Amino acid sequence: MTGRLGKVVSDITITADGYVAGPNQSEARPFGDDGGDGWGDQLHGWMFDNPAEHQAEIDQLGSAGAFIMGRNMFGPVRDEWDRPWNGWWGDNPPFHAPVFVLTHHARNPQPMEGGTTYHFVTDGIESALTQARAAAGDNDVLIQGGAETINQYLTAGLLDELRLHIVPLTLGSGSRLFDGVPPLKLEQVKSRATSSVIHVSYRVLPSS
């Protein structure tokens, strides 16, 4: 007997003006000019500065049965795609589940320590979601980002839930959530304010 069908969820930190990364992203500064060191300390400090205050939200991040991410979130675009490069996340990535990477460059699956295996999907967001659902079983599929990837899933009407962690910071430019996305109908499921971030969850309602 099978359980419930898992949801398709996006979970991402954004600034008060909607950016998930600043301008001038590079291999040395994956979050661009974010007002900090470029490694997301201004955006994602809430996860590390006082993790006990945000444990429920951190636990949600690790509860998915499979993940989907864009090519840039896996790692920077390199001219020599075939040379060894396992992405930003090190030898033991935090996912511990299958990760489906959207890309235009075919590559064999890359198993990592801790149970993570990267699968490189070249035939679009719907194919990636089909594969991720099969891998996740009854568990949720988490669309990791970045903004362009989440915006594609929102535009296609493929997201069930949107979890935002809103930090008290503005960037003014960079990679922005909702850019190019048609108007959405959202139902607030829950919200919680902490000392450094507001956690908000929305159910994405059908547009018609």
Rank of each mutant, 00 (worst) to 15 (best):
Q60A: 11
G70E: 03
G45R: 07
A52M: 15
T13R: 02
G45T: 04
G38S: 11
A56L: 10
E53T: 09
A52N: 15
M69R: 12
R71A: 15
I14T: 11
F48V: 13
G65F: 02
Q25V: 11
M69D: 10
D59M: 09
R71T: 06
E57K: 05
W81E: 10
A56V: 13
G18W: 00
G45H: 06
R83T: 08
L43D: 06
G70L: 04
M69W: 10
G32E: 01
D82E: 14
G45K: 06
G32H: 05
E80M: 11
S26R: 08
E53Y: 01
N24V: 00
D33N: 09
D11T: 10
D82S: 14
F74P: 01
A16K: 07
A52Q: 15
G18F: 03
P76S: 05
A28Y: 04
F31W: 13
N72Q: 12
T15W: 05
A56H: 13
E80N: 15
M47H: 12
V77S: 13
Y19R: 08
R83L: 05
E27H: 09
G75C: 10
Q42E: 14
R83S: 09
G36Q: 07
N50L: 07
P23L: 06
L61S: 08
N24Q: 13
P23Y: 07
A52T: 15
A16T: 14
